[in-house]
Design a binder for these strands. Structure first.
Length: 310
DNA sequence: TCGCAGGGCGCCA
DNA sequence: TGGCGCCCTGCG
């Protein structure tokens, strides 16, 4: 059985949203579609997804953010504001970060392309699982696997939704990542049958190690290099996945994940087309761009994928 | 039918 | 240290 099911179809138009004033600059669409997070469903200009396993519908209208809490229990505005602020890293001074890019023509260009793109602070276990599944994969495939995994673990959340334009009602399924203890108890063959293939052994072994006391959450308090070293001792976590988990969930905004898209744009614009290894580029990125190299990475990554496909 | 892909790993030179 | 094949799956 799903953990949570609404009795009546949720209609955005007939519901009263909570209005929040996000800091400027902030852009919901860029922040949720730039590739740093999986599992959010875009419905017209809004998004349906989970924050700390509670379902929300978010829609930005100019300088305000309309938010509908689709969870069972009502939430008060102050804790909600804090939750959103934490999730979207509204505590980062993005204006200051962007000002420091002025001397770099490429960064200035990307900042103009995606105004208000913010890093998101995800749950560490959630983030680790999703980036483990991203190894040699793509977003549609990852999302299918997440649905099957949470269906198998009976942790899926179903939200009936009425499209405000077409009036059509449909059920949206939002996958909740099963806990390490649940995943560790699932047979590897069953994990494989969700479509994750060879990643199943990585996921199961990571779950076991976390159950045995691997201090995932406390890596926030460690230095970037020692946190990364520890993370890479987990099976299936290499340079790139470790940097993604550090950047998107463990409060290390200096992390600089380098995948094929980042490699392409960095070699082209900073190394005159000369070939460099991902490890070299990741270290270069951190030392060249400094404490908030992760923001540079996200803007360059999104720019590379959106504008340099050819 | 086959090659490929938003890595990681183990093997080998 | 770097190059290579393999790992699952889905897609063109």
């Amino acid at each position: 059985m799903p953990l949570f099911t609404q009795n009546t179809a949720f209609s955005y138009k007939n519901s009263t949203p909570t209005i929040l004033i996000p800091p400027s600059p902030f852009n919901l669409i860029f922040s949720l579609t730039c590739g740093q997070i999986f599992g959010w469903k875009q419905i017209n200009q809004g998004f349906l997804g989970l924050i700390q396993n509670n379902p929300f519908f978010l829609e930005q209208k100019g300088d305000t953010l309309a938010l509908l809490n689709l969870g069972g229990s009502p939430l008060e505005i102050d804790p909600l504001q804090k939750q959103l602020s934490h999730f979207f890293r509204w505590d980062d001074d993005l204006k200051k970060i962007l000002r420091s890019w002025r001397k770099d023509p490429l960064l200035s260009k990307t900042a103009a392309h995606f105004p208000g793109l913010r890093l998101i602070r995800q749950d560490p276990w959630d983030c680790l699982v999703k980036f483990l599944l991203s190894i040699c994969s793509n977003i549609p495939k990852i999302e299918k696997t997440l649905i099957r995994l949470s269906q198998g673990a009976e942790s899926i959340i179903s939200v009936p939704f009425q499209d405000p334009k077409t009036k059509r009602c449909f059920e949206t399924q939002l996958p909740v990542i099963p806990s390490p203890s649940v995943i560790a108890s699932i047979k590897e063959e069953k994990l494989r049958s969700t479509g994750m293939g060879f990643r199943a052994s990585y996921l199961k072994e990571c779950s076991k190690q976390i159950l045995q006391g691997f201090p995932l959450n406390s890596l926030k308090q460690k230095s970037y290099s020692s946190a990364k070293k520890e993370l890479m001792e987990l099976p299936g976590i290499g340079e790139k996945v470790a940097d993604c988990v550090l950047l998107f969930s463990l409060d290390h905004p200096e992390a600089f994940p380098v995948d094929v898209w980042m490699q392409k744009i960095l070699e082209r614009y900073y190394f005159h087309g000369k070939s460099k290894t991902p490890k070299y580029l990741s270290e270069w990125g951190r030392s060249h761009f400094g404490n908030f190299a992760g923001y540079v990475q996200q803007y360059l990554y999104h720019f590379s994928r959106s504008c340099l496909k050819s």
